[in-house]
Amino acid sequence: MKVEVKLFAVAKQIANAESVAVELADRATVGQLRDALVAQFPGLAPVMSHIAVAVNAQYSADDVILTADSEVACIPPVSGG
């Protein structure tokens, strides 16, 4: 399945894209998505452990299972305020 991933701030800067399509096995997890993103964009490797992943606008652990229509986003450490 293909999952669309939104990127923000430094993640967007590293990948040079606001969103990227990632090819994953059906029922892939957030953890597997992280590995696929790093494989696709090696520049993300040093920052990936600091990035949170949101699924359907909710912070999600690595064992959360994705579907093709999941809204997925990479959330680097936030700095609002």
Partner: peptide, 9 residues
């Protein structure tokens, strides 16, 4: 807000 809201500067 500074810990959890996805806003970046």
């Amino acid at each position: 807000l500074k810990e959890v809201v996805p806003i970046w500067k």
